[in-house]
């Protein structure tokens, strides 16, 4: 079934959280760590509550509130989030204090807020929303799982309006640990050189993106998810190719009608090779654009891609794409497709 996006909002490494549309001045990564541009959270969250919130909670709650405000929705029928790492900062604080204080006299706040479902719970608490509330933690399929859950709910009741989103943060702990795996580039290989760098490694990213979606179109609808699918651990490029062909077939889409491919190139030449190979084979002649040069690599980065694609479609200007295929993979093991259309 089609899922109509009524509003979208994202806090990302790009500026302009409160602006409409994609920022005119694109921010480029200056190092292999691409942190979000944090908005003035006091405009969105009661300062008394901010004092307890770690970064991921702030960015999740603020993006969710803006999305609800744009959709003029006070009480969503469900709140569904996806996160791979959860509230890492609070987890780090809690564990560090356990070590430093010999497992005694631990601060309760960091422990309480270290769980993966804190963002969805905080949104519900602020709204006093007792409706369905769920968080999916499935590594690089976390957002896709949240979206699938929302789709299943809307299949039963298309009139519902659901807040669905994702958030992941970089912390000093996670950056240091992930850096040991040698998955990030040297700093001189970022900026304009990231995509097509010809070297291995990528840049660490983070962000939150939230959407109000429904099974019914209304005047506010900005775009429409025609279909989405995921593939775990394809054995070779042939299986990935078949996955894409089958997806287009099942969604009754002729590739010639797709105006833009939004790909998850992240600058790692090994991981990007599959995009380049199949672009020529499957999408010859169709423009391809990348998004991880705007948000960095993280397991729920596809939520940023959906926000970006939705903005491109909703620009509604001459020449703006009417149908976008988002194709993302994370470390070659998690492939996802989202087909987005104008509505």
């Amino acid at each position: 079934m089609k899922l109509y996006i009524h509003s979208s909002s994202a806090i990302s490494p790009q500026p302009g959280f409160t602006d409409e549309g994609f920022p005119a001045q694109i921010r480029k990564p200056e190092s292999n760590r691409f942190d979000v541009v944090e908005p003035e959270y006091r405009e969105w969250i009661d300062p008394k509550l901010i004092r307890r919130m770690s970064r991921i909670i702030r960015m999740g709650v603020a993006a969710a509130k803006k999305s609800l405000q744009t959709a003029k929705l006070e009480m969503p029928d469900a709140i569904i989030t996806g996160t791979a790492y959860g509230c890492l900062e609070d987890t780090g604080v809690f564990i560090q204090r356990m070590v430093e204080q010999g497992e005694e006299m631990l601060s309760p706040t960091a422990f309480i807020q270290s769980t993966h479902n804190t963002v969805a719970a905080q949104i519900a608490l602020l709204l006093k929303c007792h409706n369905y509330n769920n968080t999916f933690v499935h590594r690089a399929f976390s957002f896709e799982s949240a979206l699938l859950d929302a789709a299943l709910l809307l299949e039963e009741n298309p009139r519902q309006k659901i807040l669905v989103g994702a958030a992941d943060e970089i912390t000093s702990y996670s950056y240091d640990i992930l850096s040991r795996f040698d998955i990030y580039k040297k700093n001189e290989e970022v900026g304009d050189k990231l995509i097509g760098s010809g070297t291995t490694g990528t840049i660490a990213g983070e962000g939150s993106a939230f959407f109000v979606i429904s099974g019914e179109k209304n005047d506010q609808s900005i775009s429409c998810i025609d279909d989405f699918a995921s593939l775990y651990k394809p054995v070779d490029a042939g299986e990935t190719e078949k996955f894409i062909i089958d997806f287009l077939k099942s969604s009754d889409t002729d590739i010639k009608n797709v105006d833009l491919i939004l790909s998850g190139h992240n600058g790692d030449n090994k991981g990007d090779a599959i995009y380049d190979a199949l672009q020529e084979k499957l999408f010859g002649g169709i423009p391809m654009r990348t998004f991880k040069n705007y948000c960095g690599e993280y397991p729920t980065a596809i939520s940023f891609a959906l926000w970006y694609a939705s903005l491109l479609i909703s620009e509604n200007a001459k020449g703006s794409p009417k149908k976008i295929l988002i194709w993302n993979h994370y470390k070659g093991t998690h492939h996802s497709l989202i087909l987005l259309s104008a509505c």
Binding site: Q101, M105, P108, T109
Partner: peptide
């Protein structure tokens, strides 16, 4: 304007 979570923090403060 403190609340119940703050009360727990204050208990920890007295202990620490």
């Amino acid at each position: 304007g403190l609340d119940s979570i703050d009360a727990l923090e204050l208990i920890v403060l007295l202990q620490q």
